[in-house]
Design a protein around this nucleic acid. Structure first.
Lengths: 166, 166
DNA sequence: CTGAGTTTTCAAAAAATACTGAAAAATAAT
DNA sequence: ATTATTTTTCAGTATTTTTTGAAAACTCAG
């Protein structure tokens, strides 16, 4: 396998992986491309490399910047914007977890709080409230756990789960 | 808010949450419905409740069973199959993590292994291999960490991340 | 200020994904 | 064996998501 092939394969797979992680295929491919490119790339470079439209590059680059996975890097003497990827995998994971917690877990917890206000003394309602209560408790714990996870450093987490448990 | 409304809202939100977790909207709604239903339900009950076709119920129920999120429960004297949801949230999370690790992380690691065989002595190739190597190392660690995570019990994980860290 | 280069926007088109409905297969009761 | 019920399958349809391409809006050098 040569470089071109390997690079191609990586971009492809990273795209697939990303698409299961709330990052769409193209977004993840752009991220992959920037990951394996030593030099920052312009929107135009990316468009040519992946064979997609400028509009598409633009939208996805901006989304990637929102996620904190890609940075703008200005090259002196160049008018275009250049971009580079966050290459520290631990930071990448933290970015994704932070975003998804905010966009998914937190809204769910808000809904669970609302729902647990349901009125009614009948058995069915009580049953319902019990189930919701349990889910709420678990979710809140997970929420705090994730906050802590994100504060902790890569080594600690990996070491702990890597070895310590039986 | 009354029971009907609350139940509706829960199913709706759980559906949205699930759709970000590799579980499609309807699949997650079925799971939600079964979660808040004290009695096991038949495919027909589910179809009526969510206003979707039998075919849809059937496909999604089977997917849910593959994921390990729903069990078949036969009622004596009844010809139909009945279904109930896994209600232990810790188990639910474990199911999902296990499946996604298998379907996403493991294939990625295989690709990374292939790719790191790329031949070439030039600087560019060496750079590429270095990046891939780092990602591979991180992924393998994550893989083991997830295995351990899944072996550990809910209390341990939540307690550890809940408090212990600074 | 002008205009070439660059980025942004967004309606319409294309692609991917999910759903239906009807028919076929399986299962079980008579 | 026949019939009634339930489950499964899948081609066609509908919905959702992503992408394009062309126009508008910027930006900055001259």
């Amino acid at each position: 396998m040569d470089l071109k092939e390997g690079r191609e394969k990586f971009i492809q797979s990273w795209g697939t992986l990303g698409s299961h992680w709330g990052i769409n295929r193209t977004m993840a491919q752009i991220h992959a491309l920037l990951l394996v490119s030593d030099e920052p790339m312009s929107a135009n470079d990316i468009k040519d490399d992946l064979n997609i439209s400028m509009g598409n590059v633009n939208m996805n680059i901006r989304a990637l910047m929102d996620w904190g996975l890609v940075y703008k890097k200005l090259k002196s003497g160049e008018r275009k914007d250049f971009y580079e990827a966050e290459k520290d995998m631990w930071k990448v994971v933290k970015c994704i977890v932070t975003q998804r917690k905010k966009k998914e877990l937190e809204p769910m917890i808000r809904v669970l709080n609302e729902i647990s206000q349901v009125k009614g003394e009948d058995k069915e309602t009580q049953e319902f409230k019990k189930v919701i209560q349990e889910i709420k408790l678990f979710s809140s714990k997970a929420d705090t756990a994730l906050d802590n996870f994100m504060k902790s450093d890569s080594n600690w987490v990996l070491k702990t789960f890597f070895n310590v448990m039986k």
